[in-house]
């Protein structure tokens, strides 16, 4: 029993590590990406339609590949980057590559919803374009971005369980090896409970934060 708990704890930490690192990178890369996608379109403050289209297509490309296939297809790249295609760090690479465009698109929607009148007001008061991003777009879209990041975290918890299949460790790996291959329903159940608890916690925290930030 204590052995199971120990395994469960280790797997949970692996999952948190994979999800945490990949989502953090997605957050840092996704926001600038989303800002660019919103502001470089026609009539945007950093208008650059060509670059906008190219980047938009790349984002769509990665968004359309199912994670399992993306993971396998990226193996050579992963090996190049972290030296191995096996283990937690190897899973971080495809997870990040899936999470970034996913989150960027959601953040983009929130940014797009910022009332155009606010941007005009900012221009009229003498804001430069970078000021508009920093003082108008991002703060006004923040509740939506937090909500979007919550969805990204939950989705990545899901995907990280899939990464268990290529030996990435984590809860998915645990459930797969014990629950599926050895028909150990106790392990399976425990993992499910842990995952549900984790997702609930993330969702609850994210909702609370978004609500607190929303002053509308």
């Amino acid at each position: 029993m204590s052995l199971l708990l120990e395994r469960l704890w280790a797997s949970l930490l692996d999952t948190l590590l994979m999800v945490g690192v990949s989502s953090l990178i997605a957050l840092l890369a996704g926001i600038p990406l989303a800002v660019f996608l919103v502001t470089s379109g026609r009539g945007g403050i950093f208008e650059a339609p060509l670059a906008n289209q190219v980047l938009g297509s790349i984002v769509n490309l990665f968004r359309s590949i199912p994670f399992l296939i993306l993971m396998v297809a990226l193996i050579p790249f992963t090996r190049l980057l972290v030296g191995t295609s096996y283990g937690v760090w190897a899973a971080v690479v495809p997870l990040t590559i899936a999470a970034t465009p996913f989150f960027a698109r959601i953040a983009e929607v929130s940014l797009r919803e910022v009332d155009h009148g606010l941007i005009e007001a900012a221009q009229a008061m003498g804001c430069q374009r970078r000021h508009i991003v920093r003082h108008v777009l991002l703060p006004e879209a923040l509740p939506g971005i937090v909500g979007g990041f919550t969805i990204t975290l939950v989705t990545m918890i899901n995907a990280s369980a899939m990464a268990g299949a290529i030996g990435a460790g984590g809860l998915g790996d645990l459930a797969y090896r014990y629950g599926y291959q050895r028909f150990d329903s106790q392990v399976m159940l425990t993992v499910i409970v842990a995952l549900v608890a984790l997702v609930t916690l993330v969702q609850f925290g994210g909702d609370r934060l978004a609500q607190k930030l929303d002053r509308r």
């Binding site: 009332d115 009148g117 606010l118 005009e120 007001a121 900012a122 009229a124 008061m125 003498g126 804001c127 430069q128 000021h131 003082h135 108008v136 703060p139 006004e140 923040l142 930030l213 002053r215 509308r216």
Partner: peptide, 27 residues
């Protein structure tokens, strides 16, 4: 040149003070 709008166009995420202060801050 100052400008005011029909729908006010205030930043919802900023307090009254921060709204009024914004043009000075960016300057």
């Amino acid at each position: 040149i100052g400008m005011i709008f029909q729908h006010f166009n205030l930043m919802s995420a900023k307090t009254v003070r921060d709204n009024v202060e914004l043009p000075l801050r960016v300057a």
